[in-house]
Design a protein around this nucleic acid. Structure first.
Length: 614
RNA sequence: GGUCCCGUAGCUCAACGGAUAGAGCAACUGCCUUCUAAGCAGUGGGUUACAGGUUCGAGUCCUGUCGGGAUCACCA
């Protein structure tokens, strides 16, 4: 059990014994003692003043004495204002260190025998992945690792939006202008190849639209329909969607194609499969670079008709109601939401219908009472509504749903905009980070040739990128400065990796020279940076737990940085291999070993691997 | 307009309701004859948007104001 919990219980016991009132151990506040005071952990005494009817100073003395007498691990105490600083015995710290070293998966929890589904990435198949997908993937992946560490059986899924207007646009553009080209013939990644046709379509569409705006019909429309003071340009910007549906020739062709697809036209399906398979090849390559995987892929083409049975069920249960035109609704005004359509008047599903169906499908597939959706915060309202509907339907998993909502990734210049070409492509970004890692390694004289160096460079580069994105609280919007993301100094992934590499070097020497570490326990003269490391090591499991409970990997990222920072200072302040005594050397090496173990474990939870050399 | 999220150093971010609000970047200054300097140490930089309230104690909780964002489609 971790030390904070032990202290909470013992302080609670002390208060009960001394003052005759039971308090819950969880309420006892235990903090790490601030560096300027002596002690390891500090109990906050103010809450006991009412119970004890004594001053904090007196309570501190009494509780401190009690702990020192009744427990095996308190060495000394002092009271400053309302704070009881406790100093723990050396034997206690040795036990803690040995526990870390002897627990192969320190920081992992026993199985809960419970499954949890986590959905992330979920791309459209008309364009390559971009910066936003990277945040999504990294968040999803590290969350899945963290949930696994706390004992869930995690099932990672994505839903691929492989149908609809968007992919038909790419298909149509390829059909009209592709002249039989393929990713192979062009030497391109398939997702970029298909994406280019999507862009081409949009360009051709814009050309058609601009030409149309010059027609008498369009001019007349502007004259009769524009809002007061609205310029022609603005008017046509707003009108584009309607024009696409009602006047555009290309728009009509896309809709025809979509209809042919829905009717199962073999030629259309063949083209659709061909183009999607190109895209999937590209996605796979990007996912491999990011180091993320999925246990199961759902395809919208399989799920887009789901959910209608649920609508029927909901109508019978009185959760939904039908309007005169045949459309089906739910009224959520009592919880502050609106009325929502769940089935169109023509009987077809809307987006949320699909999600209702997919949720149930996953429950049937995996029997999981918990599901996490990693989706950007634009969809907060959608998920609030989805979860509320599932609750009202009485679905057995309804209380285990969580929307891991994350903020948009912006550039220093503002939001990424497809139209303005400011979208940061995932593959470009990865290539850029790799390039910079290589450049910096060369500057420092680190090896850059050979398979081991290549792998190390890759790990450093991806470590920088991943840490940069994961260290900020998911729900925060984040500003992505491409230059800072590939920084390798300061609060970065490589900083943490470097501390590990230092230890790795030490351990190699330990092995080569066959250093005896068995007398580490004889060392008792702990230095402050050693104590800080020990305390940090003890804290690790609870950090993982917090990250899991809050679905927030940034806790693990910040912890890793803190631990690495403490280690760097320890390294700087104290001789390790050449410590003054054999006991000090043994202890410091063991301590280093434990730090490396925890750092590697924590970083693995973030999807970051350690390089062997830097 | 309704609902939700966010306002912390010049910038990017931390801080279970606890002690004097911390890191990194950027700027300046030191430290490699000793285990890798992608490191360490120091200097400057703050009315935690503002105003009230709750309490032993508020960046954190409550109310209001201001500022930023998202969302409120028979789109996905």
């Amino acid at each position: 059990m971790n030390i904070v919990k032990i202290l909470q219980q013992d302080v609670a016991a002390a208060v009960e014994r001394l003052y005759g009132q039971a308090i819950s151990a969880e309420k006892v506040q235990i903090n790490a003692t601030l560096p300027e005071f002596t002690g390891d952990y500090t109990a906050v005494l103010f809450p006991f003043v009412k119970i004890a009817k004594k001053s904090p100073e007196v309570i501190g003395a009494e509780v401190g004495t009690w702990l020192q007498r009744e427990t095996a691990y308190v060495k000394n105490y002092n009271v400053i204002k309302g704070f009881l600083n406790l100093e723990l015995k050396e034997t206690f710290w040795h036990e803690q260190l040995q526990e870390v070293l002897s627990t192969p998966h320190y920081g992992r929890f026993p199985s809960r025998g419970e499954r949890i589904v986590i959905e992330y990435s979920s791309p459209n198949t008309n364009k390559p992945l971009h910066l936003g997908h990277i945040r999504n993937c990294l968040l999803g992946w590290s969350c899945s690792q963290i949930l696994e560490a706390v004992g869930y059986e995690v099932i990672k899924v994505q839903i691929i939006n492989d149908r609809g207007v968007a992919i038909c646009k790419s298909m149509l553009a390829w059909q009209k202008f592709g002249e039989g080209r393929t990713p192979q013939s062009e030497g391109m990644k398939g997702d970029h190849f298909v994406g280019d046709y999507y862009v081409l379509f949009e360009r051709k569409l814009q050309e058609e639209y601009e030409a149309w705006q010059q027609t008498p019909q369009a001019k007349a429309l502007y004259e009769t329909h524009h809002k007061p003071g609205q310029r022609e340009e603005e008017f046509f910007k707003d009108y584009k969607n309607r024009w696409f549906n009602e006047h555009s020739r290309l728009g009509a062709e896309v809709r025809e194609m979509l209809l042919r697809w829905e009717a199962g036209d073999p030629q259309t399906l063949a083209l659709w499969r061909q183009m999607n398979s190109w895209v999937y090849e590209g996605f796979e390559a990007t996912y491999a670079q990011l180091g993320v995987q999925f246990d199961k892929n759902y395809y919208e083409s399989d799920t887009y008709l789901l959910g209608k049975d649920i609508i029927e069920e909901g109508l019978q249960k009185g959760v939904f109601f039908r309007k005169a035109d045949g459309s089906v609704w739910i009224d959520l005004t009592d919880v502050g939401y609106d009325q929502k359509v769940v089935l169109r008047s023509d009987g077809t599903s809307v987006y949320i219908t699909q999600d209702l169906g997919t949720a149930r499908m996953r429950y049937r597939d995996f029997g999981c009472k918990r599901m996490v959706y990693v989706v950007a915060d634009e969809q907060n309202y959608h998920f609030a509504v989805l979860f509320e509907i599932l609750r009202r339907l009485g679905e057995p998993y309804a209380d285990g749903l969580y929307h891991l909502s994350y903020g948009l990734v912006e550039l220093p210049t503002g939001r990424m905009k497809t139209r303005e070409g400011t979208v940061v492509d995932a593959d470009d970004l990865i290539a850029e980070v790799m390039r910079l890692a290589r450049e910096q390694a060369a500057e420092r004289g680190s090896p850059t040739e050979g398979p081991e160096a290549e792998e190390n460079l890759r790990r450093v580069a991806m470590g920088a990128l991943k840490f940069f994105m994961i260290r900020v609280n998911p729900k925060r919007r984040m500003v992505f400065n491409p230059e800072e993301s590939v920084d390798l100094q300061g609060q970065t992934g490589p900083y943490i990796q470097y501390s590990w590499v230092r230890i790795h070097g030490l351990m190699q020497r330990v092995q080569q020279e066959g250093v005896d570490l068995s007398n580490a326990r004889c060392y008792t003269d702990f230095q402050s940076s050693e104590k800080e490391l020990l305390r940090a090591l003890c804290e690790y499991p609870s950090v993982v737990l917090t990250a899991a409970q809050e679905y927030d990997p940034s806790h693990v990222a910040n912890y890793s940085y803190q631990l690495a920072k403490t280690y760097h200072r320890f390294w700087h302040d104290l001789p390790i291999f050449s410590a003054p005594t054999p006991e000090a050397r043994a202890f410091r090496l063991q301590l280093s070993c434990a730090v490396a173990q925890v750092l590697e474990s924590a970083m693995r939870l973030l999807g970051i691997e350690m390089p062997t050399r830097m």
